[in-house]
Design a protein around this nucleic acid. Sequence first.
RNA 1: GGCCCCUUCGUCUAGUCUGGUCUAGGACACCAGGUUUUCAUCCUGGUAACACGGGUUCAAAUCCCGUAGGGGUCACCA
Length: 592
Amino acid sequence: MARCSWRPGGSNGPRRTATIPPMPAENSTSPTGRPVVTRFAPSPTGALHIGGARTALFAWAFARKHQGRFILRIEDTDLKRSSPESTKGILRDLGWLGLFSDEGPKYPCGKHGCGCGKAVDDAGFDPYDRGRQLGDNGPYFQSQRAADGLYDRYVQVLLDAGKAYEDDGAVRFRMDKDIAFTDAVYGDITVKADDLEDFIIRKGADGGKLPTFHFAVVVDDALMEVTHVIRGQEHLTNTTKHAALYDTLAEVTGDAATWQRPVWVHTPSIMNPGGSKMSKRDKARFARDKAEEFLAKHPTREDGIAALCQMMPNAITATHVSDFLGKTTDSVLLASEIAGRLGFNLPEIEVRDFLVRGYLQSALLNYIALLGWNPGDDIEHFDLDFLCSKFSLERIGKSNSTFDRAKLKDFNAQAIRGLNFGKFVDRMTKYAEAYRPTWYSSKICKDVDKWQAFCGAVQERTHLLPDPFEANRFLLSDDELIEYDFTPKPIRKAMMGNDGQGVALLEEMLAAFESLPAEGFGAAAHETINALAEASGINMGKYAQPVRIAVSGGPVTPPIDVTLELLGKGATLARMRRCVDAAKAHLAAASG
RNA sequence: GGCCCCUUCGUCUAGUCUGGUCUAGGACACCAGGUUUUCAUCCUGGUAACACGGGUUCAAAUCCCGUAGGGGUCACCA
């Protein structure tokens, strides 16, 4: 395999030789005649967000489809905004999605790509460790490549050839020709020289004399032999710059093979329902709106802010809050703090958000694959293998698409239902361990039989992993804490309807349950109800609803046998007694 | 504002290149009915779109022009 080091001395023999295997005939998507190489090149300025994940997915799938390589390269040439933490986060999230690179830095523990939600011990993990960067094209961090003097060599070549010039400490590239290029999605694009401007390829002292994105991306993609540049459409206009750079570098180095233009593939954007581009700032915006609603409930704005601050940790002052409300800051930290106190969920924007909210990676991947791409038939539900076998550039759409959480949620529910039971139990256990400690340490979760019964009862009604925990809080509640409110219609109807028939039936069951054994209580109680119903000719539902209400305070629970088994005899009877008393009091109050 | 790009049900989209088979198909959401001890699931049915205006043609969602709307870009950010 040809190494990618360009000889600054000027020897300009072709780097790629005839030893490069010819493209398979069926591979018409690589007109460059080279083996397919794609890359994902995030800048580590924050967590991996959903748009980046889709770009990575497409690049990864395309490489798989053509038996090519998928490279991960970190574009950290912006000193001020890049951080190793972001790099770790991006690596971790790509790992969670299962989009591992063939070359470039990798997350250390493949096991934690499992979505278990477990806090990963990455204390000793240094993504910048060159030993971890697999591949023969040197380091995969632009900061390291710059330190090696890589980009400077080419800047000098351009300077020497008169194609670039110094400008106030920076180096600017001349754009003096019309540029035309072909995009695999958008087709032919032409821009006249008059509409183009010379642009910076190397920053001045303030920017650490580092290459700009436009320059680094071209040099790296060329040297890494990237054949297909798949990225978001915000780069479509920028591509004129890149095309010019490829052409000029080919001309001045005489190495047309290395500086051959790649196939550009620009993907449409993912938008919010409101029409704005999906971004981190949405969290702040959302929290702000909710906070304003909260404020509006107070006599004055000042009162509202004071009340809000009251709820916040001490470190957060009124100034912080009003800055946030005044849009001086979009702090995600503040946004999530407000969300926590006011009891709402921030919109999921970053890949990690979806993990925390209980989405399965298979559902998320499936859904985002369909945002801007489709297999051409009516198949919507598929896995990564299917995607890899079907993915094609031709089927990427041109128009932006709106992110529809309702549809994603449906995909997730279907994915959960499709999980085999053992896997579902495993997911629930790990989710509880990571995000629901109270449940994780509860006797329901610790008792294998109970836990299996619980999971079995909830699987088909789970849309998001935490749903069962939210919907069944009553299972962990103290008996005395169950509150009975007989005014909501479904409850009133079940208990008070037909002259308080529900209350009477509840008493009847209570009496019958007393003699049941504590062991196997759920099944026994269920049989008893069946027998009672049959004997009285009153249908089963009339018995079941009052029990539901008695044990949970509400009209909705898992199937009655499982519910009572999880609760056990003691709790069930205690709650039924309290409920009977409360119902009678309610009845008396109503008639009196 | 200049330049580039986009425009089919509320949303994701099929169909557009290679006009007729499109009285425009699927999915999510929504509505109605059915199954079910609640909820959920499941089943059946329904509402709902070719942005607008011209042109070409025997025939246009499909081709051409214009208008409107939307997005992107015009940084020593990527």
